[in-house]
């Protein structure tokens, strides 16, 4: 619960625009909270639709402040790429965790929670709980 060590958030989408827009949305809803490190890793390195392991790894490194990194992913290859990196390699920080959460709602919950100085488990729990919010 230290002000200096905030949980980092990585948003992985098939689309660069989706990832960066969701990051912007979530940060916009933080209000007066702490400055959460959020990085978007959307699309391929060439700017197309898909997932770049390099962009994911760079994003995770850029938000790692030593308090853990929560990774949210949208579809197919975004999820599989993060899982493959976590299962097999050393490309992601040891503290990185893939969060089982809806992408937009989970990102907002994760970023807002991280901005309170919450730890990784609390951030993950808040994002996961976003699945329980019924709309109808």
């Amino acid at each position: 619960m230290s002000d200096e060590k905030l949980v980092g958030i990585v948003l992985v989408s098939h689309s660069a625009q989706v990832a960066s827009s969701v990051a912007e949305l979530a940060l916009g809803l933080v209000g007066g909270g702490l400055p959460v490190p959020v990085a978007a890793a959307g699309g391929t390195e060439g700017g197309g639709l898909g997932t770049s392991a390099e962009l994911v790894a760079a994003a995770a490194a850029s938000v790692d402040r030593g308090a853990g990194v929560a990774v949210l992913a949208d579809l197919g290859s975004a999820v599989l790429t993060v899982k493959a990196l976590l299962a097999e390699g050393d490309e992601l920080p040891d503290s990185a965790k893939l969060v089982d959460a809806p992408f937009v709602e989970g990102a907002v919950a994760a970023v807002v929670t991280a901005a309170t100085g919450a730890d990784l488990d609390a951030v993950v729990a808040a994002a996961t709980e976003a699945y329980g919010y019924r709309k109808v």
Binding site: S77, L80, T81, A87, E88
Partner: peptide, 23 residues
Amino acid sequence: AGRQLISTVGGASGPLYGTLLRR
């Protein structure tokens, strides 16, 4: 080979084939 596939493919077949070869 597996690491290269995970890094460069860009679609779901990258992590899938990459994991196959790496594991």
